[in-house]
């Protein structure tokens, strides 16, 4: 049937379960459709015509945190938004990852004031920080590729 008949005996590939799972996970990440501020517009650009994030198997944005693996915190997080953001993170099923997109999400950026959480890593664990104000789409794609590399190397027992 199909490929095996055409190619003949394809033999056996051996790998570790961890590597196989990591490979599968890294190439089918569903990000959450969740934008906060300026960076969300660049995130939209990243998915849109010119940059086309779906080349990396990342185009399926889910509006519900229950169906997402990745939270891209795109923009500044205010003190009022912080509990909401944490709730969303808690609602995501394991395994889950977080990208802090932009300077505001990474460290507060230009807004060192009373209103903005100085880095989203104060409330959720962050895997990849993407610098820029806002980061160019290429930068975000680089960050996502870095995350994919990271996921490939993650041991299974981490999420047990």
């Amino acid at each position: 049937m199909g490929l095996e008949q055409k190619l003949g005996d394809m033999g056996v590939v051996t790998t570790s379960l961890e590597k196989a799972v990591g490979w599968a996970r890294s190439n089918a990440i569903w990000p959450m459709l969740f934008g906060l501020a300026c960076c969300a517009i660049e995130m939209m650009s990243t998915q849109a015509s010119r940059y086309d994030l779906s080349r990396f198997g990342m185009e399926l944005m889910r509006a519900s945190p229950r169906q997402s693996d990745l939270m891209i915190v795109a923009g500044r997080v205010s003190r009022k938004m912080a509990p909401v953001l944490r709730t969303l993170y808690d609602q995501m099923p394991d395994p889950k990852w977080v990208i802090a997109m932009g300077d505001c999400a990474s460290c507060g950026g230009v807004f060192n004031n009373y209103a903005i959480v100085q880095g989203v890593d104060e409330i959720v664990p962050v895997d990849v920080y993407v610098a820029g104000c806002p980061p160019r789409p290429e930068t975000l794609i680089e960050g996502i590729l870095k995350l994919q590399d990271k996921i490939k190397q993650e041991p299974l027992k981490k999420w047990q």
Binding site: R79, A82, P83, R86, K96, E122, I123, P125, D127
Partner: peptide, 19 residues
């Protein structure tokens, strides 16, 4: 989770305001 210090929502930030 990835960062062992953030298993639970940190009180400091989250109790300052609510949604």
């Amino acid at each position: 989770a990835n960062n062992p210090t953030l298993h639970e929502a940190p009180e400091s930030v989250l109790t300052e305001s609510n949604a």
